[in-house]
Amino acid sequence: MYGNNQILKLEKLRKVFGGVVALDDLSFEVGTETITSVIGPNGAGKTTVFNLLSGYLQPTKGAMIYKDRSLQGEKPYKIASLGIGRTFQNVQIFPDMTVLENVMVGRHLRSRTGMLFSALIPSFLRPEEKRIREDAVRCLAFVGLEHAADTPAGSLPLGNQRMLEIARAMAIEPDLLLLDEPASGLNSRETIAMGELINRIREKRVTVMLVEHDMELVMEISDRVAVMNFGRLIAEGTPREVQENQEVISAYLGE
């Protein structure tokens, strides 16, 4: 077991784009099986943290320790195989595939069949194919999209596309799930459903880390909140502690 029940530790994480310092020695920890939110004004570097964690960008300096293991230099697919799932701020689904097929892609790491065997044996004779399908249906049911399984993913409304992204990320059976603004563009009813879904994800013993602008959602579901501004951590604590923090208030009100 990794030390102190911290699934993820960021140590003096620094990212520089040209002359712009996007992350300035950011350090914080994410407790196992918690919901941790990262908030902050636009351009604070929240999405950069996610892109570093999931391997799309490499840090300039600093360390990212996940389960006592460095994530430094790993490719996105490798990070997925370590049990880190993610969704994207601008929904990234596979629009030409059906909703179910989208989730079946998420079962990629949990299946083995190679190209030669796939080519020779038709899919209805491959037991693995049936299992992938059943697992994907279960993930779809978890987010409540099983009724839309056979529709093309591109024709879903935005709220459902966000749910689909989560179903696909859950299909890799992650231990840590990174949600990048899951409620953006959703109406209030959909946002409430999203909050309930995130709570159910935690009940499945998955640690959730989310970047979100909807403060009501953040304060309601988070165990811990980290506040960033200009690439630095300015506050960290329970939702109540953060709300009363003077520096946070001035960052948001622009004093």
Partner: peptide
């Protein structure tokens, strides 16, 4: 043979790359 490949985890991986390369790799497709 081509149809069988399309209808497998490999084929879905390929179609996923076409849809969104970033999302495909986030789902573990190399």
């Amino acid at each position: 043979l081509a149809f069988n490949i399309i209808d497998s985890r490999i084929g879905r991986g390929l179609r996923a790359i076409h849809g969104s390369e970033d999302a495909a790799s986030a789902a573990g497709v190399n």
